[in-house]
């Protein structure tokens, strides 16, 4: 690293203490956003090796599963919990087929490590089914927004997440907002209709 341009001494004005801890008059940083406030105990950082038992909260229930550090959330859902709605389509999440909600946000289960999902609320497409399916599911059915259906669960979760955030979305917003998922059969036109039907309460 001889070609590094960085200087070894801290620059003035942003001492670690003042900057981070926000103590003292000179460091009155205003929190514009705080995402979490996890408790910190005195023990050092935990390092996990090999397969261990972890607890995940899936569709409102705590479940014990076995996971290695390299086990993805998608593998746990599909191989241990028989929740096969989220699909393994791409290694890198670029198809959106493995979309699940983690703390209400749409993310790819295929690129989420199971261990990184502990302590969070995980919701899968299966939670949108049941006797009274979610409005999005019903709209997908009545607007025929599926063909082979392999991408459909990921799309349903994505549309649910999108509409949670944009309940009054316009057609232009729908077309701009749902590009994280791929459908090979080409059901997009009907997905637009389905999403707009949910907005209108049809």
């Amino acid at each position: 690293m001889t070609d590094s341009k960085q200087k070894s001494a801290p620059k003035s004005g942003f001492s670690r203490r003042a900057f981070l801890r926000g103590s003292g008059a000179a460091a009155a940083a205003t929190a514009l956003h705080t995402q979490t406030a996890a408790a910190v105990d005195d023990q050092g950082p935990k390092v996990v090796r090999g397969e261990t038992s972890i607890t995940l909260n899936v569709n409102g229930k705590d479940v014990q599963v076995k996971a290695e550090p390299r086990t993805t959330l998608l593998d746990v859902l599909r191989y241990q919990l028989e929740l096969t709605g989220a699909k393994p389509v791409s290694l890198d999440g670029s198809s959106g087929a493995s979309t699940v909600l983690i703390d209400d946000k749409p993310v790819a289960a295929s690129t989420t490590l199971a261990m990184a999902a502990t302590g969070k609320q995980i919701r899968t497409v299966e939670s949108l089914g049941g006797e009274q399916p979610d409005d999005v599911v019903q709209a997908f059915v009545s607007h025929d927004a599926q063909q082979c259906g392999f991408c459909t669960p990921g799309f349903v979760v994505a549309v649910r997440a999108f509409l949670n955030k944009n309940p009054d979305a316009t057609e232009a917003e729908v077309r701009a907002g749902l590009n994280g998922n791929i459908c090979r059969c080409g059901t997009y036109a009907n997905i637009v209709e389905a999403a707009l039907a949910v907005v209108k309460g049809d």
Binding site: A29, L32, H33, A38, L113, A116
Partner: peptide, 16 residues
């Protein structure tokens, strides 16, 4: 995994 470090998850306005 650095996602459990609270100080890395904040947006703050600094004094300047």
């Amino acid at each position: 995994n650095i996602m459990d470090v609270p100080s890395l998850k904040t947006i703050d306005e600094l004094p300047d």
